[in-house]
């Protein structure tokens, strides 16, 4: 890895790691995951399933929140506070800057998710459950989803304000989770042109639903390994495409 990219990545990670908001969100993620025990007491049915279901949902929610909130500020803050001048005036290209920022945030998310995952595994073990490989796979898939969200928020952060970045990223996140409905919807369109357009949009928008294997994990259903492999490749391709677009936009930016 180029030293410039590594330096920026480490610094980005350090920035997040010294942000109180980061710790607050990780803390609440863990708190809500642990409170799933309480929910399992109040619910009829398999207590372990309820614990896993609500616990994983809490971790998912707070990790997505961390990814969006950190990502939307990432480049914008550098430009707004002019700290970017200090980096881009050195032998660091704009492409390396974006790559470093993304990797730094990817490391941040790995740390946040890793901390929550370790505590959750320990909690499940204490509650009488064994080690579940499915849950580990769930966390891997969640991490891939977080990488896509981080890339998207980074893209918006490179050319617009945090508020608009938040609206755009959350919108894409929500759309990304109902893509299966969207796919069905396009079949009802009568006009071929509209159908083609909708089909194109389907491939363009992030299909985050692919990464959600919570039901399979909680209910103990079989997980198709090919589907998992496809999701991994999809995440990597999508992240690379979004980063390439970010770089193209960022190369043209003027710093007045």
């Amino acid at each position: 890895m180029k030293p410039g990219i590594r330096g920026i990545a480490v610094n980005t990670f350090r920035e997040s790691a010294r942000n109180k908001m980061f710790y607050l969100l990780v803390f609440f993620g863990i708190l809500f995951a642990l409170s799933s025990k309480l929910v399992s007491f109040l619910t009829l049915g398999d207590a372990m399933k309820v614990l896993k279901d609500t616990g994983l949902a809490a971790i998912n929610f707070f990790c997505v929140l961390i990814a969006i909130f950190t990502g939307i500020n990432l480049v914008y803050k550098e430009i707004e506070k002019k700290t970017v001048f200090n980096i881009l005036s050195k032998p660091v290209s704009r492409d390396e800057f974006i790559a470093g920022k993304f990797l730094g945030l990817a490391l941040t998310m790995l740390t946040a998710l890793g901390a929550m995952a370790v505590i959750f595994f320990a909690f499940v073990a204490v509650s009488g459950g064994g080690f579940d490989l499915g849950i580990l796979l769930y966390f891997v898939m969640l991490y891939l989803e977080l990488l896509v969200i981080v890339a998207i928020s980074l893209l918006f952060s490179s050319f617009t304000t945090p508020i608009l970045s938040f609206i755009f990223t959350v919108s894409l996140y929500l759309i990304g989770h109902v893509m299966w409905t969207y796919n069905e919807f396009k079949d009802y369109l009568a006009i071929p042109l509209w159908r083609a357009f909708t089909q194109g949009l389907y491939y363009l928008l992030p299909n985050l639903h692919k990464f959600n294997i919570k039901n399979e994990v909680v209910l103990g259903m079989a997980i198709d390994p090919w589907s998992v492999l496809f999701s991994v490749l999809y995440a990597l391709a999508y992240v690379l495409a979004v980063l390439a677009l970010t770089v193209l936009i960022f190369r043209r930016r003027e710093f007045q």
Binding site: N11, R18, K82, F85, N86
Partner: peptide, 12 residues
Amino acid sequence: FLPENPYFYDYL
């Protein structure tokens, strides 16, 4: 290079 009115990462 020293920019005008520099601002650096305040958490460092």
